[in-house]
């Protein structure tokens, strides 16, 4: 019995290894966007093209760090990230190929890398989600500094390890400098915020009334409303241009380690087709970036949003600093 089980164990192990390595027809996608949000779209790509995909879901920052650790040994073909800072972190170490002009031409300039290393896929705005049962829009902070007011003590939900929050901090560093940002983060930490692992639990808890306000991306609340029919929470778009009103794209880049360039390009083009852009508008409630596809009706138009004037490719240069400052403030 024992000999047989040893033999079985070893052959199963060999089989498992063999299965993991079946050549170039599989497209390996590292996705910093959750399965919840983009899983159905990726499944559709698989069904329409017949190309097998393998998706590794994790946080965008985690995957960017993983790619940097893996270097030339990386099994990934494309990196689909939640924020420009994670994409920039991969671009910075030379792991992205330059995309073709025909791909880059599909998306407005401000939403892609200036060197063409990654392309924006959908737009999202940082907002303040608030409990509309107990709060009136006129009570709400109009900028990041208002969040430090003691009336918000213990009532703010944040997700400091989330890539979008870190991108917001990076934007603040570009806008105000390192010292002012460190000071703001210390003030936030002193206001005893509630720490969450991601945006969606913050929105859920604000909707439950257990947390008053939260710094999140705009689309989580719309997803919750679509799911439950209604919500007691509401989105507050910050009225002034500042790091807190950052509008940034989720984006995608092709890795230099890819062994199936054609398929990878096909995937990037797929994300920028009218159908996929429609998917982002209707299913994930983001701003489509390709011309001719309508944004969700419940959102203020993209060109009316106040947003800071910065080159998104610069965010990555201060991402490490942003995480250091967040950690130094005791938030990470």
């Amino acid at each position: 019995m024992v000999r047989r089980s040893i033999a079985a164990a070893l052959s199963l192990l060999l089989l498992a290894t063999a299965c993991g390595d079946d050549g170039g027809t599989t497209l390996t996608i590292y996705s910093g966007r959750s399965e919840e949000l983009v899983g159905p779209l990726l499944t559709r790509f698989e069904a329409e093209t017949g190309i097998a995909i393998e998706v590794r879901y994790a946080s965008s920052t985690d995957l960017a760090a993983t790619l940097r650790e893996e270097g030339s040994a990386s099994p990934a073909d494309v990196f689909f990230a939640q924020d420009p800072a994670s994409l920039g972190a991969v671009a910075e170490v030379g792991m992205f190929r330059v995309l073709t002009p025909s791909i880059l031409a599909l998306v407005p300039d401000g939403f892609s890398d200036r060197d063409g290393l990654w392309v924006g896929v959908s737009g999202r705005s940082r907002v303040l989600v608030y409990d509309a049962v107990t709060l009136d829009p006129s009570d709400l902070p109009t900028n990041a500094d208002d969040l430090l007011d003691p009336i918000w003590r213990g009532r703010i939900g944040i997700a400091p390890s989330n890539a979008s929050f870190l991108a917001f901090v990076a934007a603040m560093i570009l806008d105000r400098g390192e010292d002012a940002t460190a000071e703001w983060l210390a003030g936030l930490a002193a206001n005893d915020p509630q720490i969450f692992s991601g945006n969606s639990p913050i929105v859920t808890e604000v909707n439950n009334g257990t947390v008053a306000i939260g710094l999140v991306n705009h689309y989580y609340l719309l997803g919750l409303i679509a799911d439950q029919g209604a919500a007691t929470a509401a989105n507050h778009f910050f009225p002034n241009a500042g790091p807190e009103s950052l509008v940034m794209p989720a984006g995608v880049g092709i890795l230099t380690t890819t062994d199936s360039l054609g398929v990878a390009e096909q995937f990037v083009e797929f994300l920028l087709t009218a159908e996929s852009q429609q998917y982002f508008a209707e299913e994930t409630f983001e701003y489509p970036l390709v011309d001719g596809v309508e944004a969700p009706a419940s959102l203020p138009p993209l060109d009316t949003l106040a947003h800071p004037d910065l080159d998104l490719s610069d965010l990555a240069t201060v991402l490490d600093l942003a995480t250091d400052l967040v950690a130094a403030a005791g938030l990470l």
Binding site: A58, D62, A65, E69, S161, N162, L319, T323, L332
Partner: peptide
């Protein structure tokens, strides 16, 4: 785990 998932610097 939060440090691992949330930071580029490991």
């Amino acid at each position: 785990y939060a440090q691992y998932a949330g930071r580029l610097d490991r």
